[in-house]
Design a protein around this nucleic acid. Structure first.
Length: 565
RNA sequence: CGGGAAGUAGCUCAGCCCGGCUAGAGCGCUUGGUUUGGGACCAAGAAGUCGCAGGUUCGAAUCCUGUCUUCCCGACCA
């Protein structure tokens, strides 16, 4: 493509709305333009990259036996009522106003409806069905360009198996395919254990790109290879002590002591003798959660025990239920009102300090075996930077990550809800065992730029670059330079190389170089008078920014070698 | 949904506090000329309902009210 003829709307200024590098560069290099919050138009260069990424995805999905579908984004709302997900998605799902339809945020229901009608026997499984399609989600706050949008492209696939072992196999095939996809797209990533959230199911992993622009926090350890979303991460931290003698319970005045630190300082006790009480509402049932000292409660872990609907109690509810405000709440004397649960670090501990359910009073010598009926102990704790890994062999680092893929073992949640059953070898009816696997296509593009750019622009890796080579004719007004450039353009194209040719007569050399750096093709071929006099042409590797010259005779071979290797 | 910021030419912004000639700059764009190895130069030119609606005023980009949009922080996020 000739730059003089094509649509390459590059901009010099940093767009005022864009904050992160990938967003700025996707606008500046003319990959896309914003139409509304979280909604983007992809322009030819941007779409060229999208197509490359989608092609890699298709190849790897096909390689594990995937079959490509194209499912409707417009769905009847009744379909979503079958699985009760109209409610589960709530305001996230777009509803069509003038017909009882919704815009699909994902496709489990459509897939399951097809499976229900057509997959009737164990002999017909396993199946892997996938599509690359536009998804719609009414995100409350779109942000970071394409990273959190209201309309985006997703590769979603679904596996159907007749056994749980089969599901494991389909899941593992996807995990391996995903590793190949991200690697081929030039991304370095973590695979982390994740919470399956409202998707349900028995297990899930996320593919995460480490980036300050990320919205998720990950606990990773380079020594042991441990990596988990902090939503589920655990670490090795000692439990609270159990003393041989359990002193009698005692109420003490603790004026103006709200936080654990204030209480501990006032009472001259270490914070790890304090049991912090947090109140949640599980529907109408209040739940009191005990945490040790300054440990932060991990609400995802709480949800995995009590379900998605549990929420923090409001201040007026606290007062009404306990007679005290936050900071003075404790587990003693409220057992008949509350379900009391505690973090594992507090298991059977004694000699603890807790709130007395009376403002400005705390209780000493609390014994969780003696004084409180703790219904159960769970890991509720948020891990922190620098803690040892659960096996004690490494140290956790907390980093931010962008989720570029998520794989779930769904199990039978959808097949049971929608009665997608099959007959097994014994002629017995069973629900299909499913998995669901997603990849955000735009996120791959944005993450690639986050990982491959400099102050001047993008540095496309060869696998997904929109063009292989950026050919720059430094001066179109010089006949020799122009002639050589045109020859090269024709010759390289005849060798099957995708060439972007800067043949603009009215742009200065500097202007062309800046545009080339911004657009970021892997190899720049620079034809100018200076080098042509010595029968040479200059090359620049955009990744390393190294330049070198090659004789005119050898240039085509050199370029072909660079592109193909 | 809570908190903050911003909407003025295609882009980046000034002007607004303290109302007053014909609303500005740089970049980009058009025409002509000179340039051509790191976002050139000269000359001429086109380009705006100052987000929208209402109000105050002799007079509003500027003050007031409402509203829409966008961005940032938080909440939320299968």
């Amino acid at each position: 493509m000739r730059l003089s003829k094509g649509f390459f709307p590059t901009v010099k200024e940093v767009p005022s709305d864009a904050v992160i590098p990938s967003h700025q560069l996707m606008i500046r290099a003319g990959l896309m333009r914003q139409l509304a919050a979280g909604v983007f138009s992809f322009l030819p260069v941007g779409y060229a990259v999208m197509k490359k990424v989608m092609q890699i995805i298709r190849e790897e999905m096909d390689a594990i036996g995937g079959q490509e579908f194209h499912l409707p984004a417009l769905n009847p709302i009744e379909l979503w009522e079958e699985t009760d997900r109209v409610k589960a998605f709530g305001d996230i799902m777009f509803h069509v106003k003038n017909r009882a339809m919704v815009l699909a945020p994902t496709h489990e229901e459509v897939i399951t409806s097809i499976a229900k009608n057509h997959v009737k026997s164990y002999k017909e499984m396993p199946q892997i069905w996938y599509q690359i399609q536009t998804k719609f989600r009414n995100e409350p706050r779109p942000k970071s360009g394409v990273l959190r949008g209201r309309q985006f492209t997703m590769k979603d696939s679904y596996s159907m198996d007749s056994s749980w072992q089969g599901l494991d196999k389909s899941y593992d095939l996807h995990a391996e395919a995903y590793k190949r996809i991200y690697t081929r797209c030039g991304l370095t990533f973590h695979i982390v254990g994740a919470s399956s959230g409202a998707m349900g199911g028995s297990g899930s992993q996320e593919f995460m790109v480490e980036s300050n622009a990320g919205e998720d926090n990950l606990a990773v350890c380079t020594e042991t290879g441990y990596a988990a979303n902090v939503e589920i991460a655990s670490s090795l931290v000692p439990n609270a002590e159990r003393f041989a003698v359990s002193e009698p319970i005692q109420e003490v005045h603790t004026p103006n002591c709200k936080s654990i630190d204030e209480v501990a300082t006032y009472l001259k006790m270490p914070t790890n003798r304090c049991a912090k009480s947090l109140i949640f509402m599980n529907d109408k049932q209040p739940v009191l959660v005990l945490m040790l000292g300054n440990d932060q409660l991990n609400e995802s872990k709480l949800q995995s025990v009590f379900g998605q609907d549990i929420r923090p109690a409001q201040a007026d509810e606290l007062l009404q239920l306990t007679g005290a405000d936050a900071g003075s709440i404790g587990p003693v004397g409220v057992e008949n009102k509350f379900t009391v649960v505690a973090d594992l670090r507090l298991e059977n501990a004694n000699g603890l300090i807790s709130g007395a359910n009376k403002n400005d009073y705390h209780i000493l010598n609390l014994d969780l075996q003696r004084d409180v009926k703790v219904q159960s102990y769970h890991d509720f704790r948020m891990v922190e930077e620098g803690e040892p890994t659960a096996d004690g062999k490494g140290t956790l680092r907390i980093v931010k990550g962008i989720e570029v893929g998520h794989i779930f073992k769904l199990g039978t949640k959808y097949s049971v809800a929608m009665k997608a059953n099959f007959l097994d070898e014994q002629g017995k009816e069973n629900p299909v065992i499913m998995g669901s696997y997603g990849i955000g296509v735009e996120r791959i593009v944005a993450c690639h730029i986050e990982q491959h750019h400099d102050e001047f622009g993008i540095k496309w890796q060869k696998s997904i670059a929109p063009y292989d080579v950026h050919l720059i004719c430094v001066n179109m007004n010089s006949d020799t330079v122009k002639k050589k450039s045109e020859e090269l353009y024709a010759e390289l194209r005849s060798r099957g190389i995708a060439v972007l040719f800067d043949d603009r007569a009215d742009a200065s050399a500097g202007f062309k170089f800046k545009d080339a750096d911004l657009l970021g093709m892997p190899l720049h071929v620079i034809v100018g008078e200076k080098n042509l006099k010595n029968n040479e042409i200059e090359l620049k590797d955009r990744n390393s920014n190294k330049r070198w010259t090659v004789s005119v005779d050898a240039i085509v071979g050199e370029v072909v070698k660079f592109v193909k290797e």
